[in-house]
Nucleic acid binder design. Structure first.
Lengths: 336, 336
DNA sequence: CTGAAAGCGCTTACAG
DNA sequence: CTGAAAGCGCTTACAG
């Protein structure tokens, strides 16, 4: 079976390969008759243009790379789903690249990625979207990128995030409105900018409602279930035990719920528990978790869509957007 | 900033571009001195070979595509993680392609994928690894592929799966050994071959222990949490209520657990619940789920590794492997 | 050990 | 409306 190329098609159809190319790319300036003829030959020979040859000639790959390193698997799944939606809309494909490294290693690793596969652009998710070093590197390499959920101020690059601080503020206010005053807090991963944002939302809500901030009620997690379990132990061992726990994501909140249940505590009667993200697990456990819905898919979808627009036309205005986060109340929180 | 190509390097170093190419690819037949010289120029000019040009010349892309359509997000995450491990080991990258379509649409969609991005190979996960139609298509296209968790008999293509039937048998036997006789079963998605395998493991265990199979105890799920919730309702409404429930995956088992808890049933005292897969959720909920550990990452890792070996050398023997599944007992099952 | 030529399968820029 | 030429940045096959 011989390979079918633009040359075989041209020969078979009795036209030049430039004409074939024109038909292929739906360009004007081809008479309807020849266009018909060429299209017919495409079918007869089952011709498939070679994307690599196209890529070389046009200096494009139609592939977007997605960089991530996140202990929450569901976050990654949602990121991918949003990214894929945007990619497929424009006939791009998505290459995934988890990276566990920091500093020099990170730059080297990304450099390697760009050397192995030519990518038209990169979408950065936390914590990479907050890495100034990486961003500077990408700029020197002249490779377009978009940031998701980044708190970095940089109006020269695409950024879509959600309002973490406001979300945390609302959730804390919700707990306060239920009569809670001793509200423990579990922080997220230190490298993620969302961690500080959520923490200050919590602190500000306390402040504005005249509740004194108590450092003893704060535990350091890293967004993983495991870290939530450690923090849960620390918090549930406090005397007196807080009446509510606000974890910076749903996985950690689920860990608190598990330990509380194991200790025969009733949730929410004995203790209220809330999370953040509205990950699937928030509704898969009993009681369902009160949480903040963060539009992860939508953030990523918009970021990638804008990235592709910018690739097509570098003069496109740099898109910067903040989406709303909203409170979802379920059974895990109740009046004190 | 001018682009640095093999030509600029050759010119700058005062050698032919073939020599540069040799150094680039670590080929022999270059004197140590010239090799040194060229390597130095690489650094000075910060030369990065263009992967697309290489791809065109060698007819390779160093990209593997991963096809999936699975309601279980954690399954996908595990598949990706195994696939990535193998890819990175050989300097390949991974492109992900979820596909929701069946029949003609599916073939067309995959055809489109291959037209947009040249892929060196494809790894098929359930239910695609069981689609004879897709497999036939890929064979006509001459594109290498590997099947994960497929029950299809085809010794001409790479296949790595785990022993679903044996796993289900062991889990059922575990429940029987605890004194259970009315064991409900929730089936998985009809398009997945694992569904029938697990079901027959369950049936055979009953048979071999002299327990009559009762169709009323069987519910049809599709591996999603939602379908598990529907099946749970059906099962827990039975009179008399079964004393144990075996769901074909952990998500569905989690849904049973949630409904049981909502109904004030104590697990495992009032009813034992077990799943399959050993997904993260199995240990994130309370009580933890007894389940069957399926080596999803390892299956995919081996499949992709073999795929890459076959791409490098088509004469490589076709790899076919069945991995063991093993019982993990947690708190959700107990003596009747 | 080294290199000149041809080619991978397309597109771009130009000419008619 | 159509095409011949050159080029994208590499590698392969061959010659010396």
């Amino acid at each position: 079976m011989k390979k079918v190329t633009i040359n075989s098609v041209a020969e078979y159809a009795g036209v030049s390969k430039k004409t074939v190319s024109r038909v292929l790319n739906n360009e004007p300036n081809v008479s309807p008759a020849t266009r018909e003829k060429v299209l017919k030959v495409f079918k007869e020979l089952d011709y498939k243009p070679n994307p690599i040859a196209r890529g070389l000639a046009r200096n494009k790959s139609f592939i977007i790379g997605c960089l991530y390193d996140n202990p929450s698997k569901s976050y990654i799944t949602r990121v991918q789903s949003g990214a894929l939606e945007a990619c497929h809309k424009f006939n791009y494909n998505l290459l995934i690249h988890p990276c566990e490294l920091r500093g020099d290693e990170l730059i080297h690793n990304v450099d390697q990625l760009l050397t192995t596969s030519r990518l038209d652009g990169l979408v950065l998710t936390p914590p990479f979207s907050d890495s100034q070093e990486l961003i500077d590197f990408l700029k020197t390499q002249n490779i377009p990128f978009a940031r998701v959920a980044s708190a970095l101020e940089d109006d020269t690059s695409i950024s879509v995030r959600s309002n973490d601080e406001q979300g945390a503020y609302e959730l804390t206010e919700h707990l306060i409105s239920l009569g809670h005053k001793e509200i423990a807090f579990i922080k997220g991963h230190q490298d993620h900018s969302a961690t500080e944002k959520r923490f200050s939302g919590y602190q500000n809500a306390l402040l504005n409602h005249g509740i004194e901030f108590n450092e003893d009620l704060v535990a350091q997690g890293n967004f993983s279930y495991h870290s939530g379990a450690d923090s849960a132990k620390q918090i549930l061992d406090l005397e007196p035990m807080p009446t509510a726990v606000f974890a910076s994501n749903d996985y950690m909140a689920a860990a608190v719920l598990k330990l509380a249940t194991q200790r025969q505590l009733r949730v929410p009667e004995d203790i209220s528990i809330a999370g953040f993200d509205n990950a699937p697990i928030a509704r898969h456990i009993w009681p369902g978790l009160t949480t903040i819905a963060q539009p992860v898919e939508e953030m990523t979808r918009q970021a990638v869509e804008q990235l592709i627009l910018q690739i097509s036309d570098p003069s496109t205005e740099v898109y910067q957007k903040v989406l709303e986060a909203k409170l979802i109340t379920r059974e895990s929180t109740a009046e004190k």
